[in-house]
């Protein structure tokens, strides 16, 4: 199709451009308005002061007398976060709990993913389905199930007492231990899925090549399989670690009053103290902590999406 005149585009080309915009605009606009803008608002409110009104904070920008534009930035909320040990401890403890849980998910999830990926082809989908299935039942209910198991007169204590291993019920519910169990239990499928994906698509002739070159199976696993599954390990770890840092339901239901996690602190600042600016500051600080892990996750997510595109 020859151009009719220099510098003018064929109408159909313009139409296609319009079409592309039409397709892209709805999701783009939605995410801008309901995902990006809210974070800017959180940032804004984290710099304002609390007041006993509706809404419970002082606007940042206001018209003072003489029509002078006033912007009041208040760093007090952040100073509060740093000076009050409660917050620092809560952040550190959240990182620790999320980190340790992630490690356990990896230790439990890797053999599972490996076994599924090396199972006969027809069995793989059903086996994987069995890992995912609990995820489709309610998260809340699964956490709740552990309350019945872990409490003092719960099933685990009853069993241990009956078997004679202990003679006093163990305090398990309302401890950090219960929080670990809850997080590992709830997030395990998120670790297994990406691990399975990388292990399953691995070219098995690489292992044959390693064996052919004189490498025993275990060494071949260490030198070939393990390094090649690093992307899956990172993706899975991020899928567990990042949400676990901000987890609220699990520490609230399974943890005790002294289980400090930042999600719980944010919740109580917001709902119990109605201190929206401080809650916002807590959220912003949490996001800053999570920026690096989120970027790593995005990097691997994009890489695997690109690999599929090829």
């Amino acid at each position: 199709m020859a151009p009719r005149a220099a510098g003018r585009r064929h109408p159909r080309v313009l139409l296609r451009r319009w079409g592309r915009t039409l397709v892209g605009l709805p999701p783009y606009a939605w995410l801008m308005l309901f995902f990006l803008v809210p974070f800017l608002i959180v940032l804004k409110i984290s710099f304002s002061e609390t007041q006993a009104a509706v809404p419970p904070f002082v606007p940042l920008v206001s018209w003072a007398e003489d029509a002078v534009l006033q912007i009041r930035l208040n760093f007090g909320n952040y100073r509060y976060l740093i000076t009050d040990e409660l917050y620092v401890d809560a952040y550190l403890n959240s990182l620790k709990i999320a980190g340790v849980s992630t490690l356990f998910c990896l230790l439990i999830g890797y053999p599972m993913a490996y076994a599924i990926a090396r199972a006969p082809r027809t069995l793989r989908n059903p086996l994987l389905m069995l890992v995912v299935l609990p995820f489709w039942t309610s998260f809340l209910i699964r956490v709740y199930a552990w309350m019945g198991i872990l409490k003092n007169e719960g099933l685990l204590n009853t069993f241990l007492l009956w078997s004679g291993l202990i003679d006093q019920p163990l305090q398990m519910l309302e401890t950090d231990f219960a929080v670990y169990v809850g997080i590992i239990y709830s997030y395990l499928p998120f670790m297994v899925l990406p691990l399975y994906a990388t292990l399953e698509k691995m070219d098995l002739s690489l292992l044959e090549a390693a064996a052919d070159l004189g490498c025993r199976p275990f060494r071949a696993f260490l030198r070939v399989t393990l390094p090649l599954s690093v992307p899956g390990m990172i993706a899975g770890s991020m899928l567990v670690f990042i949400p676990a840092v901000g987890e609220f339901v699990i520490p609230d239901l399974l943890g005790g009053p002294d289980t400090l996690m930042i999600g719980k602190v944010l919740w109580s600042e917001f709902f119990d103290n109605r201190d929206w600016p401080v809650a916002s500051a807590v959220a912003v600080a949490m996001l800053i902590l999570l920026v690096a892990p989120i970027m790593i996750f995005q990097h691997y997510q994009n890489k695997s999406a690109e690999a599929e595109n090829r």
Binding site: F34, P38, F39, I41, V42, I45, M238, L239, I242, P243, V245, G246, E247, F248, G263, L266, W267, F270, W276, A279, S280, A283, M286, L287, L290, P293, I294, F297
Partner: peptide, 13 residues
């Protein structure tokens, strides 16, 4: 991966 509690707060605000 965003912690729900952050998304929730942001949406409400």
């Amino acid at each position: 991966v965003m912690p729900e509690i952050i998304t929730g707060l942001a949406m409400l605000l």
